[in-house]
């Protein structure tokens, strides 16, 4: 009998709370591939899973904290970033990751997002953008493109949306990237880079919401969304984030936009602390 050596590969179940599967996300949801990429990125980045703290807010993407077998916390709506800030300052050895949706991070937690980026707190933020509030029934959010229909904009949206890479890079983030769920390898590599990057790293993951957003805008099933991403996406690394607006049609600019170095909040804090100690 010939022996066959099995490649020592960790399966996704290593980091999943298997007893909670199947999860509540709809068929074709974009959060699943994003979580898969994050799990593989942990190994790619060579991090110790015991030192990762995962924080989520409210919404579909907020469920990630409950589904992963990491030290995780499910915070109140929009307050994932303040909680993560406190966690990082309380124990700077932790690798703090915030995994949440656009309705949580950018809408109610928008102020926290810009201030976390301004302070340059050493954490990785993964924002799954599905252009609406999916869990509560598809209401209009601050990322819904112009003219998109939602349950609170039945004739089309007239609010200009946020351009997340531009918002975050202007606020001072040191790593900003945007990918869709079809760019699996790039997303995995990008998350691994961001996990090892000191400073505020922000990755926007564009994912389909076929049940609500796709249905209201007649964009079809999840597969049609992914084919649309294949057609519309243009990979432009180091592009100006100001040119990365997303509309109902037209190109979606994806890629790594910003990768710079800046002293983090912890560095500044220590500098001031040392100076104050010398004066005493």
């Amino acid at each position: 009998m010939t022996s066959v050596t099995i490649e020592q590969k960790k399966s996704l179940d290593t980091y999943l709370r298997v007893d909670r599967m199947p999860h509540i996300w709809c068929a074709g949801c974009g959060i699943g591939p994003a979580v898969g990429c994050f799990i593989r990125a942990i190994d790619r980045a060579g991090l110790d899973a015991d030192k990762i703290a995962l924080v989520s807010g409210i919404g579909c993407a907020g469920r990630v904290a409950g589904y992963l077998r990491l030290d995780s916390f499910h915070t109140t709506h929009g307050r994932a970033l303040p909680f993560a800030t406190g966690l990082k300052l309380g124990n700077p050895n932790l690798d703090v990751v915030v995994f949440s949706g656009d309705g949580d991070l950018v809408a109610i937690g928008g102020n926290h997002l810009i201030h976390a980026a301004r302070r340059n707190i050493d954490m990785t933020v993964i924002c799954v953008n599905n252009f609406n509030y999916g869990m509560t029934g598809g209401q209009l959010g601050p990322t819904t493109p112009l003219e998109a229909r939602s349950s609170t904009s039945p004739y089309g949206n007239f609010d200009p949306p946020f351009n997340l890479p531009r918002l975050v890079s202007a606020s001072g983030a040191t790593y900003v990237a945007r990918w869709t769920v079809i760019h699996l390898r790039q997303l995995e590599r990008s998350i691994a880079e961001a996990l090892n990057k000191p400073g505020f790293s922000f990755i926007e993951v564009i994912g389909p919401c076929p049940t609500v957003y796709g249905r209201m805008n007649k964009q079809g099933q999840g597969l049609d969304h992914l084919h649309a991403y294949q057609e519309r996406c243009v990979v432009r690394n180091w592009a100006d984030p100001g040119e990365a607006d997303i509309g109902m049609s037209g190109p979606i600019v994806v890629g790594k936009f910003v990768d710079t170095d800046r002293p983090t909040f912890w560095d500044h804090l220590n500098n001031v602390f040392k100076k104050a100690q010398k004066k005493r």
Partner: peptide, 12 residues
């Protein structure tokens, strides 16, 4: 690729 793209972690 099937394992990576599966939203339900159902493919190995």
């Amino acid at each position: 690729l099937c394992e990576a793209i599966c939203p339900d972690f159902a493919v190995i």
